[in-house]
């Protein structure tokens, strides 16, 4: 009898979550599911003819995209190169401007607190503005073309780069810096000899990563008039010239994949 009792008590294993949590999670799950179901039926009502109607439209349009017009390649190659150039120029300028900003936004280098906080806040502000909004503003200010696009990309990538690199700087080994200071190096020499060698690989890798982002972003910026292939794509779509648009999309796809592949390989080799 006692034996049986024992086995009962050992079998009564406590569950991992208390009963209250279980009920809460179950309720939350069904509420979320309910919201999904509701929004699904709601959006279906808004679409003329519901899902089946929408898909019919999709097939009709997709049909118009094929076959892509290969003859247009020579004509769109120029704008494609423009897009890449935009990304190159913007990334280069941003990479240069990043250096002082990242140093000022790194707590271990900029020990003067107010300066550190001002730079941090400035960088945070830069990152709150979406690149597309920047492009719209600059196109308004400087007119349609490459220049507003480049400007938007510079500001956009500066925000990301300076933030990421300042964090890299903060994670650096401070001991060599102390040694350089102890041997009589001034601030610039200490940074140049002890800090730069430590962050250079990550710096290069991050710049390449931002370059990848910039290639894609510069295509999108073209849509709002900031030059490059995006501008042409937008025009062709506007003229309902779908075979041309399809060719442009394929070209963008290929170029982005090739550039990402090369950049990934370089970054792997670096780290």
């Amino acid at each position: 009898m006692t034996n049986e009792n024992n086995s009962v008590t050992t079998k009564k294993v406590p569950s991992i979550y208390p009963a209250k949590t279980k009920i809460q999670v179950t309720v939350i799950f069904f509420v979320v599911l309910g919201i999904y179901l509701f929004s699904m039926t709601w959006t279906q009502q808004q679409m003329v003819g519901g899902f089946s109607g929408a898909f019919q439209n999709v097939f009709q349009v997709i049909e118009k995209f094929f076959p892509p017009n290969t003859a247009v390649i020579s004509a769109i190659w120029g704008p494609m190169v423009e897009t890449i150039q935009m990304a190159i120029i913007a990334t280069t300028v941003a990479a240069i401007l990043t250096v002082p900003l990242a140093l000022l936004a790194a707590q271990n280098v900029t020990t003067f607190k107010p300066l550190y906080y001002i730079t941090r806040t400035f960088l945070n502000l830069l990152r709150t503005i979406p690149d597309l909004v920047l492009a719209v503003i600059f196109v308004g200010l400087f007119g349609i073309g490459l220049f507003p696009g480049i400007l938007a990309l510079i500001i956009f990538s500066l925000g990301i780069l300076a933030k990421l690199i300042s964090e890299t700087i903060e994670s650096v080994d401070m001991n060599p810096l102390e040694a350089m200071r102890a041997s009589g190096g001034n601030v610039l020499q200490v940074i140049w000899y002890a800090l730069i060698p430590q962050v250079l690989p990550q710096f290069t890798s991050l710049v390449l990563y931002v370059f990848e982002i910039n290639i894609r972003a510069s295509v999108v910026l073209g849509l709002v008039g900031a030059g490059g292939i995006g501008l042409i794509l937008n025009q062709q779509l506007g003229f309902y010239n779908y075979p041309n648009a399809m060719m442009i999309i394929i070209l963008i796809f290929v170029v982005v994949i090739v550039i990402e592949y090369i950049s990934t390989k370089i970054r792997e080799a670096l780290l």
Binding site: D173, M180, S183, N186, V190, P197
Partner: peptide, 29 residues
């Protein structure tokens, strides 16, 4: 600091730089 050299427990070399460059850092002052 130029006339007082210092040696540390953890050597404090720049790990990614080569030996000669590390030694030349002694001339910074």
């Amino acid at each position: 600091r130029t006339k007082t050299g210092m040696i540390f427990q953890n050597y404090n070399l720049v790990k990614r730089s080569n030996v000669l460059k590390n030694v030349l850092a002694g001339r910074l002052g």
